[in-house]
Structure formats: structure tokens, C-alpha cells
């Protein structure tokens, strides 16, 4: 019974402030006459209309989810693959390091015009832009993680004649797991940003498109509803990410907890 009480008090501790702020927002904005800051009630209404009604939600979210899914997927696969390659072949990595640093330093958004010029204004361009911008954190973290594999483990694998492929997948990549996930989390945040940005040009659906149209048509409540929708979308994606991380990196979490207890 006391365990339930601890759990409840923990949840309450985390919820009271957000709830309080929402309540304050609700009442403070109720009589608002400002164009740019409509009552929370109106915003939530708009949110329900645009994002909770299935057909409209699908039309508004569908293209964005496609860009996120494919873009992030390609970013992960490409980033991990190239990061591993660079991490394993040191001479190659050293040779191309300045180029990598230069390419990574370009803010993904700055390439939007370039990508439009090269790839057009449709979904493929958006997916590629997201993939390009989001690949860097996971690529660099994979590189670091692969380089930091415990040398004794690699020695052990060689002595026991463990084949290259097995060494890569069962030792190197698993060892780099925590690093890769850390990079992947940043990549997720970048995916969302670039996705929204890419939909401001030449799109016909998606959250970014909705946002820009609402702005140009001066539908402020709709704009706010899009902000809320994006916040929730980002939050849900992060929860999914954390679930995956908890499962894959269970060993790391437990090991860290043990080390912290000991120190």
C-alpha cells in the first residue's frame, strides 16, 4: 500500500506544476482580446477540430509522419553505417575529417534552398533533407562509440577466432550502443525541426504546411493548435524512443545504477 502511495506522490510531484500552469493559462487568457494570444479554450477547440478528428488529423499528419519515418530511418541507417566505417578505418577517417567537419557545420536548414534546386519540392526532397540533417549526430556518436570499444574485448575476440561479422554486430555495435542512442536522440529532435522547415515550401499537407497556411490566412488559433500538436507529436516520439532505449540498453542502465550505488 505504501508503494502505491510513493508512486502516487511521485506522479503528483511531477504533475502539479504543469497542471497549475495550464490552469493559470486558461484563466488568464479567457478574456484575452489580444489577436496573437487567444483564450486557451479557443485553442483547444481548434486543436480538437484539426488534430483529433480522424480524417483531418490524417490529412494533416500523414505527410509529416511519412517524412519523419523515412527521413529518420535513412538518417539512422546511413549514420550508423558511415559512422561505423569511419570508426573502423582510422586512416580514412583522418583523411576525410575536415570534410566531415565542414559538412556537419552547415545548418541543415541552410540547405533547404539547395535541396529544392537539386531535388524538387516534393516528399523525396523533404525526406532527403531530413536524412542529411539528422544523420550527423548519430554518425559522429557512432564513430566515437566504435572507436571506444574496449581493446581487451577485441583481443579476446581475435584470440577465440571470432569472425569479423560477428565481431562487428555482437561486440563493436553493442558496445557502442549507448553512444549511438545518445546520438539518435539528438537526431530525432533535428528530424522534427527539419521536417517542419521542409514543409514550408511547396507542400500540400503536413504539419509545417498547416502552420504556414494558418499564419498566412491569419488563423491564429489554428496556428496555436499546430504548435500544441507539434509539441505532443515530439513528446510522443520521445516516449517511443525512450521505450526502445530502455529495452535495448537495459544492461547499460542497470550497470550504471550499480556503479552509482557503489560510489
Amino acid at each position: 500500500m505504501s508503494r502505491l502511495r510513493t508512486w502516487v506522490s511521485l506522479v503528483a510531484l511531477e504533475l502539479w506544476l504543469p497542471l497549475l500552469l495550464v490552469v493559470i493559462w486558461w484563466f488568464a487568457s479567457e478574456n484575452s482580446t489580444s489577436v496573437y494570444f487567444p483564450p486557451l479554450r479557443v485553442i483547444l477547440q481548434s486543436f480538437a477540430e484539426n488534430w483529433l478528428v480522424p480524417e483531418r488529423a490524417l490529412a494533416n499528419l500523414g505527410p509529416s509522419l511519412q517524412v519523419i519515418g523515412l527521413g529518420y530511418g535513412v538518417a539512422l541507417l546511413g549514420g550508423i553505417a558511415i559512422g561505423t566505417l569511419l570508426g573502423l578505418v582510422r586512416p580514412f577517417e583522418r583523411a576525410v575529417r575536415p570534410i566531415v567537419e565542414a559538412l556537419r557545420a552547415i545548418p541543415g536548414v541552410a540547405l533547404l534552398p539547395l535541396f529544392i534546386v537539386l531535388f524538387g519540392i516534393d516528399q523525396p526532397m523533404r525526406i532527403l533533407l531530413v536524412a542529411y540533417g539528422a544523420a550527423w549526430p548519430v554518425l559522429l556518436n557512432t564513430l566515437d562509440g566504435v572507436r571506444a570499444v574496449e581493446p581487451t574485448l577485441l583481443d579476446m575476440a581475435r584470440i577465440f577466432r571470432v569472425g569479423r561479422a560477428r565481431r562487428l554486430f555482437q561486440i563493436i555495435l553493442r558496445s557502442a550502443g549507448p553512444q549511438i542512442f545518445a546520438g539518435a536522440r539528438i537526431s530525432l529532435a533535428i528530424t522534427l525541426i527539419i521536417m517542419v522547415v521542409s514543409e514550408t515550401v511547396g507542400a500540400s499537407g503536413g504539419v509545417g504546411y498547416f502552420l504556414m497556411t494558418a499564419k498566412s490566412e491569419f488563423r491564429i488559433s489554428s496556428m496555436w493548435s499546430a504548435i500544441v500538436a507539434l509539441g505532443i507529436l515530439g513528446y510522443l516520439l520521445n516516449i517511443l524512443f525512450r521505450i526502445a532505449e530502455r529495452y535495448v540498453l537495459r544492461w547499460h542502465r542497470l550497470q550504471q545504477a550499480r556503479l552509482e550505488k557503489a560510489s
Binding site: Y36, A189, M195, V196, G208, A214, I227, L230, G231, G234
Partner: peptide
């Protein structure tokens, strides 16, 4: 995503 705030 901070970009969401941009139009506002």
C-alpha cells in the same frame, strides 16, 4: 520544435 513558434 522551435520552428513551430516561428510563425507566431
Amino acid at each position: 520544435p522551435p520552428i513551430a513558434i516561428l510563425p507566431l
